[in-house]
Design a protein around this nucleic acid. Sequence first.
DNA 1: CTCATTTGACCGGA
DNA 2: TCCGGTCAAATGAG
Length: 428
Amino acid sequence: MHVFAPHQVTPLSVLLAAAAGGGFDRRDRSRVVGGGGGSREGWEMDEVLAQISEGFRLAGELMSELAATQNDPDYLAARCHAIAGAYAAAARVLQGARHGGGGVGAASTSFGGEGYLHHQHRQQLDLLRMCVGGTAPDEAAAAANPFLGGGGGATTAAFRAPSDAYGGAGAGTSGGPVRRVSSSSRSPPSPVQPRQGGAGSRRRRESGEKVTVMVAAQRTGNTEQPPDDGYTWRKYGQKDILGSRYPRSYYRCTHKNYYGCEAKKKVQRLDDDPFTYEVTYCGNHTCLTSTTPLLTLPAAAATSVTNSPTAAAVLGQDFVMAPAADQQPPQHQQAQPPLSTSIHLGIGWPMTPASLAGAVGEGSTSTTATAPQVTTMGATAAGGGGAAARDADHYPVADLADVMFNSGGSGSSSIMDGIFSSHDRRDN
DNA sequence: CTCATTTGACCGGA
DNA sequence: TCCGGTCAAATGAG
């Protein structure tokens, strides 16, 4: 399994390079397709990359034309098919190489899924549909966005990426893992009254789809921070986990009450790589898919914001998708997300039109030094994009997303605080 | 004063 | 019974 080192290739740079017909070096390109570390024949990869690049180029065109398409279903469908064709061609080559034996990397092997690349292709399409925004049915968006989810899905086993995926990440300034220091001022445990009534109210939710993300710690100064994924989370618990050196923290969406948003996440440092967090997302973010308008936006912009994982969840992060352990046949274009299919989005999937149009050289601001690696568990993970472009005059959505998701992170104040009034904070 | 975090207790599934 | 997940009182920060 390979991941992007954030300092090497940003999703945006790869995307732009791909859209421009190449330009990034072979090493990085081999990462893009999740190859086996350079053992594949060069010509194969060139062909694959050419196809993938073509797909990106077409996707980029589509994104830039979105405003003009008026969400014309026929036109969009045609464009999607063209993009799909490009990826299908790449998938065919890759599968041919796979079955031809020889030099297929651990990625394919560990994915263990027959037709892994096929699934990848399908998921790319799902992502595209989602990125198209309003033209995508909700289920498609849900299928493509692990953070939006699609209702209770099957639970799958966790896939844990090699801890050395971030090799060298530990060269930071800190001298080692920083344990959270418990509140020293806390008074001795007060006598706890037995909870009254409603004991049955504590109901453990059925484990739905989960998405596990490996994220490098953000190191600011000599401290590490849990990654900022763009959502606002409220911590509600922490547990020492048996066999783990580090406690696991539990978060729920800050807007749980207001929108009944059931999204949660667990954050835990890896034993063998304290600079990497394993973040497991559970549940659906309904707060951003609510019919309640957040802001008055042009329709396309609004849908992009609410449905785009790029803006909503993973802005500015490089994602690599990995499959969960148990494979199930993906159900394409179905309310139930394709289960455990794998996707290897080394690039930031097409973001907002502005991102494509004018984000050259724009780096992530809120999630620097993070390199998430996503493991989908019963949901399709979606790749994150680079930072929103500053050239947002023509694309309000980019501007909004930029403000929304670069201005604040987990637990921090952001525009979200303004959008969600204080009365939704009563979840404790 | 409001809200987020901390943290021990409680609950339920395995 | 164990352990992971959740609750909610206490507490701190702004």
